[in-house]
Design a binder for these strands. Sequence first.
DNA 1: CTTGACCTTCCTACAATGGGAAGGTGCACC
DNA 2: GGTGCACCTTCCCATTGTAGGAAGGTCAAG
Lengths: 151, 151
Amino acid sequence: MNIGDIANATGISAKMIRYYEDIGLIRPAMRTLSGYRVYSDNDLQTLRFVRRARDLGFTVKQIDDLLTLWRDRSRASADVKQIALGHVAALEKKMQELKDMSDTLLHLASHCQGNDRPDCPILKNLGSPDAVAPLPKTRDQRKTRAFDRAR
Amino acid sequence: MNIGDIANATGISAKMIRYYEDIGLIRPAMRTLSGYRVYSDNDLQTLRFVRRARDLGFTVKQIDDLLTLWRDRSRASADVKQIALGHVAALEKKMQELKDMSDTLLHLASHCQGNDRPDCPILKNLGSPDAVAPLPKTRDQRKTRAFDRAR
DNA sequence: CTTGACCTTCCTACAATGGGAAGGTGCACC
DNA sequence: GGTGCACCTTCCCATTGTAGGAAGGTCAAG
């Protein structure tokens, strides 16, 4: 198989496949006499693995670790689980950050008329953080309730 | 104020302040005879605005738009609200993606012993996606359902 | 033998940030 | 008047993962 075939079969662009080879994530492909990369079914498997891990949001470094474990038939499942759960924790942290931003913006937007008048609490807040009451930090995660109480 | 003072006062690094000037997000600062950048209270305000918008996850382009609206005393609040709510939608989309990843990983991890034996459904799944049962699609993901129906 | 699809390498860019080098400036202290 | 140190300047490089394009070689079908 040529690189284009593999690209189609995995959904990873030819460009990225060369890049992954370049940075050492995957092993250099065999070449024809004229220099074309040639891929085996084994390579296809590997690239599919990479694709799925990538879709799950793993970084290249993490995928590298997972690949190593994947190839190591004597690996401990605990090692894999640890990487996976560590990644889950990172995802959750990121989600919380996004949620905080989103909550703040929704709060500000709810105080904004959204008409053709110039007055806008969103801009007021950005210009000076106390123009509109900030979202309170709650001890626990009981969002809206705690919010109402705190007002 | 020198750039270091402004950096301290806003929490934006001197490096980034120069960068923002370079890409045209903020106006070039005044200079002393020897070339040092000098900032006014007005500049401080602007940089604080940028800082807050950045903390809310706006891109530089969006901050640029917000700054323009901020400076335009006759802007319509609807314009601002639209940017804010558009950004909220983007944040929510991102959160959903992260949640899907996280759910998938948690599902896989729940089937993994996490001991010193090599058997691991996480790797099995990455190598071949049907090795472990996929997450069931919940009913109220209508977008996905419409897509499924269309196949 | 030409044409078009495919392949090769190499360079550029993105967004937002940090690191560092090489050199100039401001100021306080002795 | 020096000396030293903190700060400033510009310029270049790296990051992460991906895409675009240029210039040129290859393959297969017509």
